[in-house]
Structures are given as structure tokens and as C-alpha cells.
């Protein structure tokens, strides 16, 4: 990744988030609240992103490491914890960062707590891998395949 290209990708990604409504917690909650007056807009975000993504990621397949197909308790537990946090406030990581420029105290606090949660997980993983690596001869290589 080159830095300027990355900046541009982040900008287009963020503009997409803004236009889509994903950056508005009230709109996210309106989508997640099936029993009230339901706003289905965010299904169109997913639809649009995946429609384009299917084509581009197929083309990019030679460039990418094959996706992991490991389905384990960490994947399940982590996803549920994330979903609870998302449902409580209405921010997932991208919109939480995009909200920083509003300088709203709650947006800043959410992002700070999110980064703290990230660091906490890194510390626990490092401790666990350290202990595991201590007992093994291979040094305990870690796999962090997103998708």
C-alpha cells in the first residue's frame, strides 16, 4: 500500500459511509429496530457494496491470500460481543472513526473506548501467546486473517 493511495481509498470509503447513512447512529438503530417503524436503507448499503465487491474481489483473487475458513469459538464470541456493542450505541468501527471530526464528546469517548478494547484484546492475546509459546518449540506463530 502506498500512503497517498491509501489516503484516497480511506477518503472514498468514508464518503461512502457518510452518503449511505451508516455514520448516523439513529439511522443504524432505525435499521436494527425491526419492531418499530423499520428503515430498511442500510440493507441497500450492504447490497451495493457487495454487488461491486463481488466483481472486484473476484478480479483481485490472484493478489489476495485465500480467505481463512476457520470457524471457532473466538469468531463466534467476538462477533456476538461486537453485535451487542453495535446495537447498544449504533457505531461500528468505520463510522466511529468518521464521527471523530464532529468533536462530539460522546463520539470521542466511544472511539477512545473502542481503541481501549482493541488494546485490551492485543494484551490478552500477547499474554496467551506468550504463555503458549513458552511451552512450545515453534515459537507460537499467530494467525490473524481477517477474512
Amino acid at each position: 500500500m502506498r500512503p497517498l493511495f491509501s489516503l484516497f481509498v480511506g477518503l472514498v470509503f468514508g464518503i461512502g459511509l457518510c452518503l449511505s447513512g451508516m455514520t448516523l447512529p439513529s439511522k443504524v438503530i432505525g435499521f436494527l429496530d425491526l419492531s418499530g417503524a423499520w428503515d430498511p436503507s442500510l440493507a441497500f448499503v450492504m447490497g451495493g457494496a457487495i454487488a461491486v465487491g463481488l466483481v472486484l474481489f473476484r478480479a483481485a483473487r490472484p493478489r489476495l491470500a485465500p480467505p481463512s475458513n476457520r470457524i471457532d469459538p473466538a469468531l463466534a464470541t467476538g462477533s456476538v460481543l461486537f453485535g451487542v456493542g453495535w446495537g447498544l450505541v449504533g457505531y461500528c468501527p468505520g463510522p466511529a472513526l468518521a464521527a471523530l471530526s464532529s468533536l462530539d464528546p460522546k463520539a470521542l469517548a466511544f472511539a477512545a473506548a473502542m481503541i481501549l478494547g482493541t488494546v485490551l484484546h492485543r494484551l490478552i492475546a500477547a499474554l496467551r501467546d506468550g504463555v503458549a509459546a513458552f511451552g512450545r518449540r515453534d515459537g507460537g506463530a499467530t494467525v490473524d486473517a481477517c477474512a
Binding site: G78, C92, A96, L116, L120, H121
Partner: peptide
């Protein structure tokens, strides 16, 4: 609480 859950959960789930 939501921020902590989102930060920790997304990393646990990679």
C-alpha cells in the same frame, strides 16, 4: 460499554 465491546469483539472475531 459499547465502545469497549466493539473494540474487543471485532478483534476477537478478527
Amino acid at each position: 460499554l459499547g465502545g469497549l465491546l466493539v473494540g474487543f469483539g471485532t478483534r476477537m472475531a478478527s
